[in-house]
Deep mutational scan, measured.
Amino acid sequence: MTFKLIINGKTLKGETTTEAVDAATAEKVFKQYANDNGLDGEWTYDDATKTFTITE
Rank of each mutant, 00 (worst) to 15 (best):
E15I: 10
A48V: 14
A24Q: 12
E27W: 15
E19D: 10
Y45T: 01
N8I: 15
E15S: 12
L39R: 02
D47E: 13
G9W: 08
A24P: 07
N37R: 15
E42Q: 11
F52Q: 00
V29I: 15
V29A: 07
A23N: 05
T51I: 06
G41D: 02
L12D: 07
I7E: 02
F52I: 01
A34K: 02
T18K: 04
W43G: 01
K28M: 14
M1C: 08
Y33T: 03
T11I: 14
I54G: 01
D36W: 07
Q32W: 05
V29K: 10
A24M: 14
Y45R: 02
L39P: 02
T44W: 06
M1R: 08
L5W: 03
G9S: 13
T2D: 06
T49G: 04
T51Y: 03
T18D: 02
D22C: 04
A24R: 10
E56C: 07
A20M: 03
T2K: 11
F30R: 00
A20E: 04
T49P: 02
W43Q: 01
A48C: 08
N8T: 07
E56Y: 10
N8R: 11
K50V: 04
T2W: 15
G38Q: 10
E56H: 06
Y33C: 03
F30G: 00
K4C: 06
F3N: 00
D46N: 11
A34D: 00
T2M: 13
N35E: 13
I6W: 05
T17D: 05
Q32E: 08
F30S: 00
A48P: 10
E42N: 10
L5M: 05
V21E: 12
E19P: 05
A20F: 04
T55W: 10
T49I: 08
T44V: 08
F52H: 02
I54A: 02
N37Q: 13
I54S: 01
T49V: 06
E19H: 09
K50I: 03
K31Y: 06
G38E: 07
F52S: 00
A23F: 13
D47W: 09
T25G: 12
G38P: 01
F3Y: 11
K28D: 06
F52N: 00
D46C: 07
K13E: 05
E15Q: 13
T55K: 05
G14H: 11
K31F: 06
T2F: 13
T16N: 05
E56K: 04
N8Q: 11
E27G: 06
D46G: 02
K10Y: 08
Y45M: 02
D40G: 09
N8C: 08
N37V: 13
E27N: 05
A34H: 01
K4M: 09
A34I: 06
K28C: 06
T55Y: 08
K4F: 13
A48G: 09
F3G: 00
D40N: 12
N37F: 09
F3R: 00
N35K: 15
K4P: 01
A23P: 09
T51W: 03
K13P: 06
N37K: 14
T11D: 11
E15N: 06
T2S: 06
D46E: 07
T17R: 07
G41R: 01
Y33R: 03
I6G: 02
T44H: 11
W43L: 06
V21F: 12
K28W: 10
T18H: 07
A48L: 12
N35D: 10
G38R: 08
T11A: 09
V29R: 09
D47H: 10
D46A: 04
L5K: 00
T16V: 14
D40E: 15
Y45K: 01
T2Y: 11
N37I: 14
Q32N: 10
Q32M: 11
A34P: 01
N37S: 08
Y45W: 04
T53N: 04
D22Q: 03
T18C: 09
N8P: 03
K28F: 12
A20H: 03
Y33A: 03
E42C: 08
L39Q: 03
T25M: 11
T44C: 06
T11S: 08
T55G: 04
T49K: 07
F30L: 04
K13N: 09
L5P: 00
F52T: 00
G9N: 06
E42S: 10
T51D: 01
K50H: 12
A20N: 03
N37Y: 12
D47A: 11
G9V: 13
T53R: 06
N37C: 11
K31S: 05
G9A: 07
T18W: 06
T11C: 09
V29W: 14
L5Q: 00
A23V: 12
A24E: 10
T18I: 15
D46L: 04
K50P: 01
E56A: 07
T11Q: 15
Y33S: 02
N8F: 12
A23I: 11
T16C: 10
A48Y: 11
I6M: 06
T25D: 14
Y45I: 02
E27H: 12
Y45D: 00
N35M: 15
T55A: 06
K31Q: 08
D22R: 03
T17Y: 14
I7Q: 02
G38H: 12
D36C: 07
D22P: 01
A48E: 12
K4Y: 13
T2I: 13
K10W: 09
D46Y: 04
T18Y: 11
D47G: 10
T51H: 03
T2V: 15
K4R: 14
G38K: 12
I7H: 04
Y33K: 03
A24D: 10
Y45N: 01
A23K: 14
E42W: 11
Y33F: 12
A26W: 01
A48H: 11
L12V: 13
K4L: 08
T53V: 08
N35Q: 14
D22T: 05
V29G: 04
T49E: 06
N8K: 12
G38L: 08
F3D: 00
F52A: 01
A24Y: 12
A34R: 02
K13H: 12
E56S: 07
D40S: 14
F52C: 00
L5G: 01
M1L: 15
L12Y: 14
I6L: 08
E42M: 14
D40V: 14
G41N: 01
Y33D: 02
E42H: 14
D46W: 04
G14Q: 13
A24H: 08
G14P: 06
A24S: 07
L12W: 13
D47N: 09
T51F: 03
T49M: 07
K13S: 09
E15K: 05
E56G: 05
G41V: 03
T44S: 12
K31P: 00
D22H: 04
E19Y: 15
I6N: 05
G41K: 01
I6T: 05
T11H: 15
A48T: 12
A26R: 00
T18F: 11
K50C: 06
G9I: 15
F52Y: 05
F30K: 00
D36K: 11
K50Q: 10
I6V: 10
D46M: 04
K31I: 07
I6P: 00
E19R: 08
M1E: 11
K28S: 11
K13Q: 11
T51M: 04
D40T: 15
N8H: 11
I7A: 04
D40K: 14
L5V: 03
A24T: 13
T49L: 09
E15M: 12
T17N: 06
K10C: 13
K4E: 03
V29N: 06
N8W: 15
D47M: 10
I7K: 02
K28V: 10
D22M: 03
K31N: 04
T11P: 04
T55M: 06
G14L: 14
E27M: 11
A24L: 12
E56T: 09
N8M: 13
T16W: 15
G14W: 15
N8E: 11
E56F: 11
L39W: 12
A34W: 03
K4G: 04
A26C: 02
T49F: 05
A34N: 02
T44D: 10
T16P: 03
L5D: 00
K28R: 11
I6C: 06
G14Y: 15
Y33M: 04
